[in-house]
Amino acid sequence: MEIQYKASLNGAAFLLFELKQVVKLKQKSMSSEEIRRKVLEENVFQGGKKSSMSRALTSVIRRAEVIDQTIGEKLLEGSLETSKAINLYSIMKTDLLFYEFMSEVICDKLHNDILLLEKKDINLFFTVKIEQSELVAQWSEVTIKKLKRAYLQVLFESGILKERQGTELNRLVIDEQLKEHLKYIGDAKYVHAMGE
């Protein structure tokens, strides 16, 4: 099943804390529906409005569903860097457009030792996608502007972007066992997209 382009990162950027909470519940063999109910009823995310929590929860549950037992344990028990890399992986795995951004822009820069992300790089990426995809072409300017901001937020929180408002890129140090496991389950392309 091909994942369609979507703009869901606008309402659910990094959400590492939230992902950890959902994975903990998932490890207790709770269904997605049980997790949804518990999170909303017991304010597990310690968040604000129920509407924004509910929107974020949909993305977080989708991310948790692509994380197997091994990765889930690493997410909960590994270092902060490892958790961030896993979260980034789960975002790419559930958001085709963001994966393509990582693969076509960030990965390319990291592999060519160009550790600088300029505004024009992001603008060009979206210009190309607008030309290639009828769906993206239908999105409003506001939606695309918010998505660009969300992408930068994810890059910053994952550790790829050194400063929130900066342009300098960092290489992620990805846990060797995690790397090997992702390759073993057929997800080497996501490891590559993170610059490995």
Rank of each mutant, 00 (worst) to 15 (best):
E2C: 02
I3M: 13
Y5G: 02
A7V: 04
A7F: 11
L9H: 01
L9E: 07
L15P: 00
L15M: 14
F17R: 13
E18A: 04
Q21S: 11
K24L: 10
L25D: 09
K26D: 02
K28T: 07
E34R: 07
E34V: 03
I35D: 06
R37C: 04
E42Y: 12
G47Q: 13
G47N: 09
S51F: 01
S51C: 02
S52M: 10
S54Y: 05
R62Y: 07
R63H: 05
A64G: 07
Q69V: 03
T70F: 15
E73K: 15
E73S: 14
E73T: 15
K74G: 01
S79Q: 07
S79L: 05
T82V: 04
L88I: 06
I91D: 02
S103H: 15
L110S: 10
L116M: 13
K119T: 12
K120Y: 11
D121I: 05
N123H: 11
T127E: 15
E131H: 11
S133R: 03
W139T: 03
W139H: 05
S140N: 08
T143Y: 07
K145I: 01
K145P: 00
K146L: 14
K146C: 09
L155Y: 04
G159R: 07
I160H: 01
L161E: 07
K162G: 00
E163V: 04
E163L: 05
T167H: 12
E168W: 01
L169A: 04
N170K: 13
I174D: 08
E176I: 12
L178Q: 10
L178N: 10
L178T: 14
K179I: 09
Y184D: 13
G186C: 06
V191W: 12
V191F: 14
H192S: 11
